[in-house]
């Protein structure tokens, strides 16, 4: 008993002593003229190498070129999402960014409660009335949506043109409308350049777990490669890591999603269908700074450079010049509206 008390005293003394130390680089109070931006990540949090990290990159870009001060919050359980948004909104941030469709309800509540704070939500799920018309958003909330089907169309065409096989593969994560957009665009792209090609499309599951199951991803990819597929496009979160591993072991090709995933399997990544979350977040920040912020739904497609595919030194060797120019022509056709890309199966 006495020994324990001594120990307790020693710990408290050590704690008090350590409290007095303040490192030179420590954060004191925010200062300066720039914007204050707060970002609340999806439950997956930073380090996912695609979705959340894209928003982080957008924040960093705003910090660099707009001298914005950026704060991040990584929520844990369900109630933390609203709490994180509220913490930032209550501090009078100029812009609060929520990353993910799961914030839809929370960001709507907060936007109504804090009309002076601007809000942006990536992949915000716009509600519709009984006639199917989208309900109007509060003027201080912008929904950042992406036309994933347009980018998927181009990588589909690429898979058919550069794959060297009449069979092309698709691995989806959770079997939901959001991922069907990828599949529909991809399929349309394949069929557009190769009407007698076959698309083998499979999903890892029906629960959110399907987005983080690399084992299942590998299994699906291996079976598709065995059926004669040479290129697989995945839209499946970290399940795709298994697809890349299968591509590595069989020497075939895979297509990444959301961000440039070349580094996951160098030499085996044909390209990646990238979603410009960073650019969208940066644009929102810039709009707030220049006073041109407008609430409502903003859709980013090929025309807005919100989606696209990677073509750089890493994969130039895999894409013949003729294919590249064909893709550029297709891109121009989509932007001009000459090709309509479906977004449902």
């Amino acid at each position: 008993m006495r020994r324990t008390l001594y120990l307790l005293g020693a710990l408290v003394a050590a704690h008090l002593l350590l409290l007095t130390i303040s490192p030179s680089g420590a954060t004191i109070a925010p200062e300066g003229e720039g914007l204050d931006i707060g970002i609340v990540f999806d439950v997956g949090g930073r380090g996912d190498k695609s979705f959340n990290d894209g928003a982080y990159l957008g924040g960093m870009l705003a910090a660099d070129s707009l001298q914005a001060r950026v704060r991040y919050i990584e929520p844990g359980e369900g109630s933390d999402r609203e709490a994180g948004l509220r913490l930032l909104a209550a501090e009078g941030m100029d812009l609060v960014v929520a990353v993910g469709f799961i914030f839809t309800d929370d960001v709507l509540t907060l936007a109504r409660e804090y009309p002076d704070v601007k809000f942006a939500d990536v992949d915000f799920a716009v509600a519709t009335d009984s006639l199917g018309n989208p309900l109007p958003l509060p003027p201080n909330l912008v929904a950042l949506k992406f036309r994933e089907e347009e980018g998927s169309f181009l990588v589909g065409a690429l898979a058919a043109l550069a794959g060297g096989s009449k069979k092309v593969g698709f691995v989806g994560g959770m079997d939901i409308a959001l991922i069907h957009k990828f599949e529909a665009g991809y399929r349309a792209g394949v069929m557009h350049v190769c009407p007698d090609c076959e698309v083998i499309a499979q999903y890892a599951g029906v629960t959110p777990e399907a987005f983080k199951n690399p084992g299942k991803g590998k299994e699906l990819a291996l079976s598709q490669y065995q059926q004669g597929v040479n290129v697989i496009f995945h839209a499946s979160g970290s399940t795709g890591l298994g697809v890349f591993e299968a591509a590595r072991t069989t020497g075939r090709l895979a297509i990444g999603v959301d961000a440039d995933q070349y580094s996951e399997a160098p030499g085996h990544v044909l390209t990646s269908m990238v979603k410009g979350i960073d650019a969208a977040v940066y644009d929102a920040a810039k709009a707030v700074q220049t006073g041109t912020f407008v609430g409502g739904v903003r859709v980013f497609g090929l025309a807005e450079r919100g989606v696209g595919y990677v073509y750089d030194d890493n994969n130039r060797a895999l894409i013949p010049d003729a294919v590249r120019s064909r893709l550029l022509a297709l891109e121009a056709d989509i932007i001009a509206g000459r090709i309509k890309v479906p977004n449902t199966r």
């Binding site: 050590a14 704690h15 350590l18 409290l19 130390i21 303040s22 490192p23 954060t27």
Partner: peptide, 17 residues
């Protein structure tokens, strides 16, 4: 709390703050 102090210090922030 003491472990927290040390972690915060290694992260370059002030424990008191």
């Amino acid at each position: 709390m003491v472990v927290g102090d040390l972690l915060i210090l290694t992260y370059g922030e002030s424990p008191a703050t």
